[in-house]
Amino acid sequence: MSDYKAEPVKGRKGDVSAHDGASSWFYSDEVKEHFFNPKNYIMNDVDESQFNAIGKVGSPACGDELRVWLKIDKDERIVDFKWKTFGCGSAIASTSMASVMVTENGGMTLDEARSIKPQDIMTRLKGLPARKFHCSVLCDKAIRDAINDYFRRTEQIDRMIVEAKRMIDPVAKVTDHDIEEAVLDGALDLDAVQKKTKVGVGNPTILPAVEELIRFYREKYFG
């Protein structure tokens, strides 16, 4: 029991949900590896003096909260990436994978890191269930938040990029900003937001992500 923290949690080989090994697990083997043996996470307390950029995204109210600590060298390469997360299996795995992607081969430049898309992380994880996709969206946002923090600390305010709008429903052309506006306008549930924006009306697969956003903005503005 004494040093269990250092020990990876072992899953059964191949299949966790069935003992006969005949059926598949909920996630790909890559997700499973990063979930049971997450890389680069910070155990317990963080010594923030060791890092020069900090990013945060999400809140426990919406089920995922992610914090990242980066060390950026003088050539603007990310040489260290540590994280903590409160989240489900795919949130843990996608953050772990992102930390590997950002720091491998000498580390990404800030421009490279800023252009990471959720799809890139998902591709490396060999896929995530559709309804889990929003979890890895968080991670790229946290990286961009940390990079802005670095520019703030190094007084390069002109290089900061305010988070662009994110297209939530390409069919109805609704962005996260539209949903934020709808919530601020008093639409506090899916029905009300749909009345204002038509989000997901012809595209129901995105509804879980929309509900997540509604909850996030509701929590943010109305507590």
Binding site: K10, V16, F36, D64, R131
Partner: peptide, 30 residues
């Protein structure tokens, strides 16, 4: 301080099958 789906999957790996009220295992994500 933790999220139920992650614990559910860790328990699953030890052969313990339970359930969680976490949003992550519900279809609605509520």
């Amino acid at each position: 301080d933790l999220e139920g789906e992650a614990l559910l999957l860790y328990l699953d790996a030890q052969g313990i099958y339970a359930s969680t009220g976490s949003a992550c295992t519900s279809a609605s994500l509520d």
